[in-house]
Nucleic acid binder design. Structure first.
Length: 483
RNA sequence: CGGGGCGUAGCGCAGUCCGGUAGCGCACCUGCUUUGGGAGCAGGAUGUCGGAGGUUCGAAUCCUCUCGCCCCGACCA
């Protein structure tokens, strides 16, 4: 690179550094030593005077349940039509966070990410026989050539077609492919905001194995991955024996979060309430059957699967509650591979239909479910792992030069350290700022005001506990940059 | 898809029964004063009353049709 260009760049980065952006070392970037994701993040607007955060003071009349109300009030989403939403900056950050945790745990479990289309040809669904079965929930579209298309409600057919065309031998197995993509199901009655939308973001994956034993291992891997995924979000999602529904198949578990606003009735052993579902770290390549048996030994079943007359749990030990379904896994063998001709040549030369499973996580639904599980009267309380920003920084008196200097300085240092901090630098009354920050629910708040600045301290408030502590600016910085 | 409810300013609502120049609170704009839990004063802007048709001298209001949204149920990640 010519010499004079880096100097021009360095002037730019000097100016950027003065505004709180990190100074980029081009050499370091070229050597791959600087995380480009972090650079992009550091460029993002995080000042409330510039950020698009349309807060609502009152509850919109169309929103009835708490997560829907709070998502609208906190400027996370706006409704476009029934069950269809636009995601605004704050909401999109959470959606991406949730998606990223799902992605990391899928990758860890050995699944590989792909991206399939939202629009699918009807032909594929005629092959599996589901085109007529699926009914009015499938949004059918006709293109300009009068070809029948559809907006995918799920992707079993699509993935089966991809795999059958690409995989010939049992040596190519196992495979597990996932994507995170928008789906559409034309629900008769969408409700509960993003938790029961018509358009929704879902992670779905599909496992392909040679025989039932290998397929069960794939199922167990996903079972484990799901426990880990939800635990990382601070959610207790109980695996429950479930009906296989229109996907079909032999074995199925739903992962349910207990919440008053859950849409279905679920039953489980009382001991689940005290069970801590850890983000278990188990070797995915080991025999997972003992693990699976352990986590399915305590009774838990959805309404359709629960039969009071032969329930193994005595009534006094049984809990009946409402559940939000955030994940669903299926083992269905050759249900799709057989009619669609997805076969491999086995070890002894026979053609064998692939043994398949499919696994879903409602990514957009989880955002609502997370709020159902984490809020109080003042607003949302984000778990750290999914919070749109780690910190909120409030400058109570932007017009005061000392407050401004202290807040700008802290903001710049936090940004430089890669901390995601939403900075309320607006000229507004203190009460309004406190209320806004509580509403959007960032895990911790740093509050800078004339009182503290005079004493050389800022206040640090934890959103969940409400605990407040006065810290020096340096101590506050260390607290959130040293972890 | 059955049953119910609601569409009036960005949000929350009154006005509709009983037709007569479209209102209130918050938010917004301007100015001044304020500033540690949704500030005060003064001034200002904002509407095809969901849409179409009809009745009438005159319709947010009455009649007909229609669209949208919400709730309960059935259904669903």
């Amino acid at each position: 690179m010519p010499r004079r260009i880096p100097s021009a760049v360095s002037r730019v980065t000097d100016a950027a550094a003065a505004r709180g952006f990190p100074r980029f070392d081009l050499g370091q970037i070229r050597r791959g030593g600087l995380d480009c994701g972090r650079i992009a993040n550091c460029r993002a607007i995080m000042r409330l005077t510039q950020y698009f955060l349309p807060l609502l003071r009152e509850n919109p009349s169309e929103a009835q349940i708490v997560s829907h109300r709070l998502m609208l009030r906190a400027g996370m989403v706006r409704q476009s039509s029934a069950g269809i939403y636009s995601w605004l900056p704050l909401g999109l950050r959470v959606l991406n966070r949730v998606g990223q945790i799902v992605r990391e745990e899928q990758d860890r479990a050995g699944a590989q990410e792909i991206l399939m289309p939202t629009i699918q040809p009807a032909e594929l669904w005629r092959e599996s026989g589901r085109y007529d079965d699926y009914g009015k929930e499938m949004l059918r579209i006709r293109d300009r050539h009068e070809r029948d298309m559809l907006y995918g409600p799920t992707n079993e057919e699509q993935i089966t077609a991809i795999v059958r065309d690409a995989i010939r031998s049992y040596r190519d197995l196992p495979k597990n492919l996932y994507h995170i993509q928008w789906k559409f199901r034309d629900e008769v009655r969408p409700r509960f905001g993003v938790m029961r939308g018509r358009e929704f973001l879902m992670k779905d994956n599909y496992s392909f194995d040679l025989d039932a034993a290998a397929a069960k291992h794939a199922y167990n891997k996903m079972f484990l991955a799901y426990l880990r995924t939800f635990a990382r979000m601070g959610l207790k999602a109980i695996p429950m024996r479930a009906d296989t529904g229109p996907i079909g198949g032999d074995l199925s578990h739903e992962f349910q979060i207990l919440a008053e606003t859950g849409e279905s009735e679920v039953f489980c052993d009382r001991r689940w309430l005290d069970t801590d579902i850890l983000a278990a770290d188990v070797d995915y390549d080991s025999d997972l059957e003992p693990f699976f048996r352990h986590w399915t030994s305590l009774y838990a079943a959805t309404d359709e699967m629960h039969k009071p007359e032969n329930c193994p749990v005595p009534p006094e030990q049984l809990v009946s509650a409402r559940g939000i379904e955030v994940g669903h896994i299926f083992y269905f063998g050759a249900k799709y591979s057989k009619p669609m001709g997805a076969v491999v040549t086995g070890p002894n030369g026979d053609e064998v239909p692939l043994e398949m499973g499919s696994y879903g996580i409602g990514v957009s639904r989880l955002v609502g479910a997370l709020i159902e599980a984490n809020h109080d009267d003042a607003g949302i309380i984000w778990p750290d792992s999914v919070a749109p920003f780690r910190l909120g920084l409030i400058n109570l008196r932007p017009a005061d030069a000392k407050c401004r200097a202290a807040a700008d300085d802290l903001y710049a240092k936090l940004r430089r350290a890669g901390v995601e901090v939403l900075y309320d630098d607006r000229d507004d009354s203190p009460g309004a700022k406190f209320a806004a920050m509580d509403l959007i629910g960032l895990p911790d708040q740093l509050i800078i005001g004339p009182r503290g600045v005079a004493a050389g301290t800022i206040e640090c408030k934890n959103r969940r506990s409400g605990a407040r502590v006065d810290l020096s600016l340096d101590a506050a910085l260390t607290r959130f940059t040293s972890a």
